[in-house]
Amino acid sequence: MLSRFDYFKPHNLNEAMQYLVKDEKTFVLAGGTDLMILLRRNLIDARHILDIKSLPETQVFEFVEGAGLTIGASVVVNKIVDSELVKAKYPAFNEAAAALASFQLRNRATVVGNICNASPGADLPPALLVFDTVVNIVGLNGSRQVKLHEFFTGVKRTVLQPGELVVSITIPEPEPGEKSTYLRQARLRGHDLATVGVASRLKPDGKVALGICAVAPTPLRLFALEDQISQRGLSEETAVWAAQEIKNHIRPITDVRSSAAYRLHMASVLLKRGLLKLLGKEG
């Protein structure tokens, strides 16, 4: 590692924000599972590391009736895997969390980190997208909320401005009787980045929400396709139709992990399987 940095563990959010704006070469550390690799590969030059794990705001894991579940930036992914509440209310999120990386990494990797890293193939965003997750951002001049589908701007890029920090996300409360699921394909059964990952959610009113990763520069919420499905009404026939139609909504690339052709095919298969699962018809 060529970076030479100071390490700072702030007592409160204000202290953190003051530190964050001092130098553009300040990087935020939560789980570190991505940051440490960037440092090791000398892909970034860090002069300051801001460890936000001690901030109470980042440690929140709280469900409020009507408001939903707020997850602080220090909450690790295994907490989601083990949470009975998440299993019950947000099954797709639970499944995505369980599919992410390896057990040890999930003990360190944070939910918010998985979002802020803005990898096109990250597992959690598709699931969080279908639940209309909101990103809670704090800056020196106050705080703002951004819908997750507006958060990503490109490969490894987000709307975060210099001096801003994501302290938590909020996942609105789902309606009773909802169903959701996350399905993914990878190169092996063991820990791997997703070749394609598809989250789908069915609300009691028949409306469907779809999120997908690794088929575009950012994780996507497929609003247009959702509308088409909702108009047709979710059924086995619609699932089969949607599996064909999705090819008009995504533009996967060929890279070292997969060909575009296979990604396109798997997006189709995973969408169909996801929708059928929501209908209680697992293939």
Binding site: Y7, L29, G32, T33, M36, I37, R40, I49, D51, K53, N78, F103, Q104, L105, N107, R108
Partner: peptide, 13 residues
Amino acid sequence: GKAVTSCIVLAVE
């Protein structure tokens, strides 16, 4: 109490 990969944890953490 938790298994972690120590190569990507800073000692100061």
